Simulated assay, not measured.
Amino acid sequence: MSHCELEEVTRSINDKISLIKKLLDLRAVANDADKRGFLLKIEQDVNAINGLLDRFEKCVTQQRDLLKHLKELDEFFQEDVQDAHHLKENIPQHMPCKGQQAAQRGQAEGHCRQADAQVEPQEQPPPRKPPRSHIKEMEFITVEEFDTIPQYMKGRLTYDQLNVAVRSINTAVMAKYRILQQPTKSLSNTARKLHQRFKEQETKETKGQFFVVEEDLRELAQLKLDKRFVGMLNMLRHCQRLKELRGGGLTRYMLL
């Protein structure tokens, strides 16, 4: 046995001897009637302390469980924060208008009604003309619609680039029809000439519709009508945003 082990055994024996002496002293005190009352009071206090320790241990356990629950909630919250940051950093530059989905549903219902009308013909009320103050704008392309465009038509063109073209066409349409809706007397000489040109470009097919020609796109929206933009027009036709009407040496891009 080593020296350290011998000291440890000696210390343990001495502690037990000391404890036995204290127990013998307490036993002698317990036989004294005067001191017995103090011992009972000490016992009550010790029991009370033990009760407090039990309550304290229970509270510590509850707080530990609560802390674990809060950590789990914090992890969920951090995931929500990351999702929110991801959404914020990836908001599409061109969101569909508020009524676009309703319009698409209405269009589908219209096709159903048209099919029913072919089975059972009946008089249809004449289509309403848009209010004079209303100028129709082309709806932005949705991601789902963009995915339906064949790859050979898209090439390297992105979703955002196509919607930039939609915005530019809308700029030309708004500028054109704001001039057409104003009285000619209130227009400047330049605007009056544009007004006359716009009127001359109208046909029976475009009556009550909104359209632009290449010259409008160049002058009113500063667009470069190159091969790339022509490809965008083809994609917009594919998505049923516009159609072409040719005649009189002009190609009219009419909004649908």
Score class of each variant (00 low, 15 high):
T148P: 04
M254F: 02
Q222L: 05
L26C: 13
R156H: 11
R105E: 10
K41M: 12
A117T: 12
H195Y: 09
H69E: 13
E244C: 10
T184E: 13
A33L: 13
R128W: 07
K154N: 08
E145W: 01
G249C: 02
D74T: 03
T190M: 09
E205V: 02
Y159A: 06
L24Y: 12
H86E: 12
K193I: 08
Y159I: 06
E8P: 03
R218T: 00
N234K: 13
M1E: 08
N90M: 07
Q196E: 11
E8W: 12
T251C: 01
A165S: 03
T206Y: 00
S188Q: 01
C112P: 03
H195G: 06
D216Q: 00
Y253C: 05
E8I: 11
L256E: 03
L255H: 02
E145A: 05
T190P: 00
E139Q: 12
L187Y: 04
G231R: 03
D160N: 08
D160E: 11
A84H: 09
Q82G: 05
M174K: 11
H94P: 02
L180D: 02
L26Q: 10
R218V: 00
K41W: 06
H195T: 01
A108L: 12
V173K: 01
L6V: 10
T190H: 05
V230R: 10
N90D: 07
V164A: 06
R113T: 12
A115S: 14
F210T: 01
L39G: 14
P131D: 10
I169T: 00
S18A: 14
H238F: 15
Y152E: 15
K154E: 07
Q196N: 11
F77K: 08
N31Q: 05
Q122G: 08
G110S: 12
F140V: 04
N47E: 09
E75G: 08
S18L: 09
L194N: 09
A221D: 00
L255V: 06
E79G: 04
Q44W: 09
Q122P: 01
L162T: 05
G106W: 03
F146M: 04
A30L: 10
N31W: 01
F211L: 01
K224N: 14
T251G: 01
I141Q: 00
G99W: 06
T158W: 02
N31D: 05
A172L: 02
I141H: 04
A172W: 02
F140W: 04
T171C: 06
D15I: 15
H111V: 13
K68N: 14
R113W: 14
A30Q: 06
K154T: 10
Q100V: 08
E144W: 02
K185S: 15
E89Q: 09
E72Q: 07
D160Q: 06
E43A: 14
A117S: 15
D226N: 15
R113V: 12
A33D: 12
V46I: 14
K16H: 10
K58M: 13
N50M: 08
L66H: 14
V164L: 08
E79I: 06
F56S: 11
H94F: 13
K88C: 05
F77Y: 14
G231M: 03
D216H: 01
D25F: 10
P131T: 02
L245I: 11
D45W: 03
N90Y: 07
R241G: 05
R156V: 09
H85N: 09
I13F: 11
K98W: 03
F198T: 04
E5C: 09
N163L: 03
Q182S: 12
